[in-house]
Protein backbone atom coordinates (compact mmCIF):
# COMPACT_ATOMS: atom_id res chain seq x y z
CA UNK A 1 0.00 0.00 0.00
CA UNK A 2 1.42 3.36 -1.03
CA UNK A 3 1.12 5.87 1.76
CA UNK A 4 1.95 9.50 2.27
CA UNK A 5 1.71 12.29 4.74
CA UNK A 6 -0.47 15.33 4.28
CA UNK A 7 -1.09 18.15 6.77
CA UNK A 8 -0.36 15.90 9.75
CA UNK A 9 -2.93 13.42 8.50
CA UNK A 10 -1.93 10.04 7.25
CA UNK A 11 -3.40 8.96 3.93
CA UNK A 12 -3.76 5.28 3.12
CA UNK A 13 -3.72 4.97 -0.64
CA UNK A 14 -5.95 2.52 -2.43
CA UNK A 15 -4.05 0.18 -4.75
CA UNK A 16 -5.33 1.11 -8.21
CA UNK A 17 -5.34 -2.27 -9.88
CA UNK A 18 -5.72 -4.71 -7.01
CA UNK A 19 -8.21 -3.02 -4.64
CA UNK A 20 -10.90 -5.57 -5.43
CA UNK A 21 -8.90 -8.45 -3.96
CA UNK A 22 -9.57 -7.06 -0.48
CA UNK A 23 -13.18 -8.13 -0.07
CA UNK A 24 -15.26 -10.98 -1.55
CA UNK A 25 -18.02 -8.50 -2.41
CA UNK A 26 -15.59 -6.57 -4.59
CA UNK A 27 -14.59 -9.77 -6.37
CA UNK A 28 -18.24 -10.59 -7.01
CA UNK A 29 -18.66 -7.08 -8.41
CA UNK A 30 -15.66 -7.45 -10.70
CA UNK A 31 -16.95 -10.83 -11.90
CA UNK A 32 -20.19 -9.10 -12.82
CA UNK A 33 -18.35 -6.34 -14.67
CA UNK A 34 -16.12 -8.81 -16.53
CA UNK A 35 -19.20 -10.51 -18.01
CA UNK A 36 -19.29 -7.49 -20.33
CA UNK A 37 -16.13 -8.75 -22.08
CA UNK A 38 -17.88 -11.99 -22.98
CA UNK A 39 -21.18 -10.38 -23.88
CA UNK A 40 -19.34 -7.76 -25.95
CA UNK A 41 -17.31 -10.35 -27.85
CA UNK A 42 -20.41 -12.48 -28.34
CA UNK A 43 -22.33 -9.51 -29.74
CA UNK A 44 -19.52 -8.85 -32.20
CA UNK A 45 -19.86 -12.49 -33.21
CA UNK A 46 -23.56 -11.87 -33.84
CA UNK A 47 -22.69 -8.77 -35.91
CA UNK A 48 -20.40 -10.93 -38.04
CA UNK A 49 -23.03 -13.66 -38.29
CA UNK A 50 -25.57 -11.15 -39.62
CA UNK A 51 -23.02 -9.82 -42.08
CA UNK A 52 -22.32 -13.38 -43.29
CA UNK A 53 -26.05 -14.00 -43.73
CA UNK A 54 -26.22 -10.87 -45.87
CA UNK A 55 -23.30 -12.15 -47.97
CA UNK A 56 -24.98 -15.47 -48.76
CA UNK A 57 -25.06 -19.17 -47.76
CA UNK A 58 -21.38 -19.85 -48.50
CA UNK A 59 -20.17 -17.00 -46.35
CA UNK A 60 -22.47 -18.15 -43.53
CA UNK A 61 -21.10 -21.70 -43.87
CA UNK A 62 -17.58 -20.30 -43.44
CA UNK A 63 -18.73 -18.56 -40.29
CA UNK A 64 -20.17 -21.83 -38.95
CA UNK A 65 -16.84 -23.60 -39.58
CA UNK A 66 -15.17 -21.15 -37.19
CA UNK A 67 -17.92 -21.73 -34.65
CA UNK A 68 -17.28 -25.50 -34.82
CA UNK A 69 -13.63 -25.09 -33.78
CA UNK A 70 -12.65 -26.03 -30.20
CA UNK A 71 -12.09 -22.34 -29.55
CA UNK A 72 -15.60 -21.56 -30.80
CA UNK A 73 -17.06 -24.18 -28.46
CA UNK A 74 -15.03 -22.93 -25.51
CA UNK A 75 -16.05 -19.36 -26.26
CA UNK A 76 -19.72 -20.29 -26.32
CA UNK A 77 -19.51 -22.23 -23.07
CA UNK A 78 -17.75 -19.37 -21.27
CA UNK A 79 -20.16 -16.81 -22.69
CA UNK A 80 -23.12 -18.91 -21.56
CA UNK A 81 -21.74 -18.96 -18.01
CA UNK A 82 -20.97 -15.23 -18.10
CA UNK A 83 -24.44 -14.47 -19.48
CA UNK A 84 -26.09 -16.49 -16.72
CA UNK A 85 -24.10 -14.59 -14.09
CA UNK A 86 -25.01 -11.31 -15.74
CA UNK A 87 -28.71 -12.18 -15.81
CA UNK A 88 -28.95 -13.25 -12.18
CA UNK A 89 -26.85 -10.34 -10.90
CA UNK A 90 -28.96 -7.96 -13.00
CA UNK A 91 -32.35 -9.25 -11.89
CA UNK A 92 -31.36 -9.52 -8.24
CA UNK A 93 -30.80 -5.77 -7.90
CA UNK A 94 -33.90 -4.62 -9.80
CA UNK A 95 -35.89 -3.81 -6.62
CA UNK A 96 -33.15 -1.37 -5.57
CA UNK A 97 -33.03 0.42 -8.90
CA UNK A 98 -36.75 0.28 -9.64
CA UNK A 99 -38.77 0.07 -6.43
CA UNK A 100 -42.51 -0.06 -6.95
CA UNK A 101 -44.72 1.71 -4.47
CA UNK A 102 -48.25 0.44 -3.97
CA UNK A 103 -50.14 2.94 -1.84
CA UNK A 104 -48.59 2.98 1.61
CA UNK A 105 -46.18 0.12 1.00
CA UNK A 106 -43.40 -0.90 -1.32
CA UNK A 107 -44.00 -4.03 -3.35
CA UNK A 108 -41.78 -6.73 -1.86
CA UNK A 109 -38.40 -7.03 -3.56
CA UNK A 110 -38.98 -10.74 -3.93
CA UNK A 111 -42.00 -10.12 -6.13
CA UNK A 112 -40.07 -7.74 -8.39
CA UNK A 113 -37.12 -10.13 -8.70
CA UNK A 114 -39.48 -13.07 -9.14
CA UNK A 115 -41.37 -11.29 -11.93
CA UNK A 116 -38.10 -10.73 -13.77
CA UNK A 117 -37.16 -14.39 -13.41
CA UNK A 118 -40.57 -15.46 -14.70
CA UNK A 119 -40.29 -13.17 -17.74
CA UNK A 120 -36.73 -14.42 -18.30
CA UNK A 121 -37.82 -18.06 -18.24
CA UNK A 122 -40.85 -17.34 -20.45
CA UNK A 123 -38.73 -15.59 -23.09
CA UNK A 124 -36.12 -18.34 -22.96
CA UNK A 125 -38.74 -21.08 -23.44
CA UNK A 126 -40.35 -19.12 -26.25
CA UNK A 127 -37.04 -18.75 -28.09
CA UNK A 128 -36.18 -22.40 -27.45
CA UNK A 129 -39.54 -23.62 -28.78
CA UNK A 130 -39.30 -21.34 -31.78
CA UNK A 131 -35.61 -21.90 -32.36
CA UNK A 132 -34.86 -25.57 -31.90
Amino acid sequence: MGKKMNKNSYIREVPRASWFLKQPRYIRYMAREVTSLFIGAYTLMLVIAIKRVAEGPDAFQNFLEILYSPLGILFNISTLLAALYHSTSWFNVTPQAMPIQWGEEFVSGRIIVGAHYIIWIAISILILVFGV
Partner: peptide
Protein backbone atom coordinates in the same frame (compact mmCIF):
# COMPACT_ATOMS: atom_id res chain seq x y z
CA UNK B 1 -21.05 5.17 -9.16
CA UNK B 2 -21.07 1.80 -10.90
CA UNK B 3 -23.42 0.05 -8.48
CA UNK B 4 -20.92 -2.05 -6.56
CA UNK B 5 -23.63 -2.13 -3.91
CA UNK B 6 -21.18 -2.34 -0.99
CA UNK B 7 -22.57 0.86 0.57
CA UNK B 8 -25.97 -0.73 1.10
CA UNK B 9 -24.45 -3.95 2.42
Amino acid sequence: CSFVGACSE
